[in-house]
Computed example of a mutant assay.
Amino acid sequence: MELQGLNSFPFRGHQAYLKSAPHYDFVKYRQLVHEITQAFNGISKEVIQIKDRFREVYDRCDLSEHLEKIQEMEKEKLELTARLQIAKQNVQDHPSQEMYQEEMQILKHKIIKSVEAISEVLQDFKYDCEEIQ
Rank of each mutant, 00 (worst) to 15 (best):
Q85V: 01
I70M: 03
E68G: 11
Q89S: 10
S96E: 07
E79F: 01
E79W: 04
Q89E: 14
Q97F: 04
L78F: 14
V91G: 03
V91K: 05
P95H: 05
L80S: 04
K77M: 14
I86F: 12
K75H: 10
T81D: 08
R83A: 14
R83T: 09
D93S: 04
A82W: 04
L78C: 04
Q89L: 15
Q97A: 12
R83S: 15
S96I: 02
L78E: 13
Q92L: 15
T81E: 11
E68D: 08
I70K: 00
L80G: 06
L84Y: 05
I70W: 06
Y100F: 15
E102R: 15
Q97K: 06
Y100C: 01
V91Q: 08
L80T: 06
P95C: 03
Q101M: 07
V91P: 02
A87P: 08
L78H: 10
Q97M: 09
R83P: 05
L80A: 06
I86H: 13
E74G: 02
N90Y: 04
Y100P: 02
E98K: 14
Q92G: 06
N90H: 10
H94L: 05
Q101H: 13
Q71C: 05
Y100S: 01
I86D: 14
Q71H: 00
E103R: 09
A82T: 13
E74W: 01
P95Y: 00
Q92C: 03
M99L: 04
E76K: 08
E103W: 02
H94E: 12
L78G: 14
Q89V: 11
D93R: 00
R83C: 09
E74F: 03
R83W: 02
V91I: 13
H94D: 11
Q89G: 10
E102I: 15
M104L: 00
Q89A: 10
L84G: 06
A82V: 13
R83H: 09
E102Q: 15
L78K: 02
M73W: 09
L78D: 05
Q101G: 08
E68V: 01
I86S: 08
S96Q: 07
S96K: 02
Q92M: 15
E72H: 11
M104K: 12
E79Q: 14
Y100D: 02
Q85C: 09
K69P: 06
